[in-house]
C-alpha cells in the first residue's frame, strides 16, 4: 500500500484538510508518543490551524487535539480523505 499515488506527508496539508494515517517513519523521534496518542493506521487526522508564527501545527486526531512542528510532520505519511480537502 505504501507508495500509493495519493499518499503525502502530513506537513504538506493546509488548515482544514483531513487525512488518514498510512505510515509512520520508523526513525521518527516521536514515534512512540505518536502511537500513544492514537496515530495508528487508519486514524483520521485533521489540520486545524498553524500557530501565529506559522509553526507548530494544531492537529485533531480523532477527538484529541495536539500540536506538532512541521518538521515532525514530515515523517508521517497520510492519504487525503476523499473530498476532505
Amino acid at each position: 500500500m505504501i507508495g500509493f499515488m495519493g499518499d503525502v506527508t502530513l506537513d504538506t496539508l493546509k488548515p482544514g484538510a483531513a487525512a488518514h494515517v498510512v505510515a509512520l517513519d520508523a526513525r521518527h523521534p516521536l514515534r512512540r508518543r505518536l502511537l500513544e496518542l492514537g496515530f495508528i493506521r487508519g486514524a483520521r487526522v485533521e489540520v486545524m490551524r498553524f500557530a501565529p508564527l506559522g509553526d507548530p501545527v494544531h492537529l485533531r486526531l480523532g477527538r484529541t487535539d495536539l500540536a506538532l512542528r512541521a518538521a515532525d510532520l514530515h515523517g508521517v505519511t497520510v492519504r487525503a480523505v476523499q473530498g476532505g480537502v
Binding site: 505504501i2 505510515a23 509512520l24 520508523a26 514515534r31 502511537l35 496515530f39 495508528i40 493506521r41 515523517g75
Partner: peptide
C-alpha cells in the same frame, strides 16, 4: 500489533 507499519 495495531500500530502503523514503519516505513522501510
Amino acid at each position: 500489533r495495531i500500530a502503523p507499519q514503519p516505513v522501510p
